[in-house]
């Protein structure tokens, strides 16, 4: 997970998440995803991004992710070349005022998040791209 920088507050998979802009290439409008036959777990398909195939995360395959009925409207393209479908972009957020908490051991999202930040009534999960990629690789290995 990247330290410092600014943070993007988004809603995805029915949860409030924050993404470090240092881990982000860009956010693009949602385009139709081409489903990958015999897809690996965690990847629902690909989109063409800058002339290359870009894998798109399947939230529902991740531990602790409920199946959201809200259709995604945008995709966050992470630096390690992975697209994350977003239901909504809420805005930039200053995490320095929030209370950072280590992830709860019982929280299933611990395998792909880097803890939580509580800001007033908001309970935000911090997406950790390194953990997420490691998890996807582990999925492949276990297949």
């Amino acid at each position: 997970m990247s330290e410092g920088g600014s943070w993007l507050h988004v809603r995805a998979a029915g949860m409030d998440l924050v993404l470090s802009t240092l881990d982000l290439r860009e956010v693009v409008a949602m385009v139709p995803i081409s489903p990958l036959p015999g897809r690996p777990p965690g990847i629902q398909g690909v989109v063409v991004y800058q002339g290359e195939f870009l894998p798109v995360l399947a939230w529902e395959d991740l531990p602790g992710c409920p199946l959201s009925k809200v259709p995604p409207m945008a995709m966050a393209v992470l630096r390690p070349r992975l697209a994350i479908p977003l239901e909504r972009m809420i805005g930039m957020i200053d995490l320095s005022t929030g209370a950072h908490q280590e992830a709860d051991e019982n929280d299933l999202t611990v395998t792909w998040t880097g803890g939580r930040v509580r800001m007033g009534a908001l309970d935000l999960r911090v997406l950790d791209p390194d953990r997420l990629i490691a998890l996807l690789r582990r999925f492949r290995g276990e297949r």
């Binding site: 990958l36 036959p37 002339g51 195939f53 992975l82 690789r137 492949r140």
Partner: peptide, 15 residues
């Protein structure tokens, strides 16, 4: 075009 590592699927060479 080859598939990126995360999207490697058995039996698919690329797209």
């Amino acid at each position: 075009r080859s598939l990126p590592e995360l999207a490697h699927a058995a039996g698919i060479m690329g797209g």
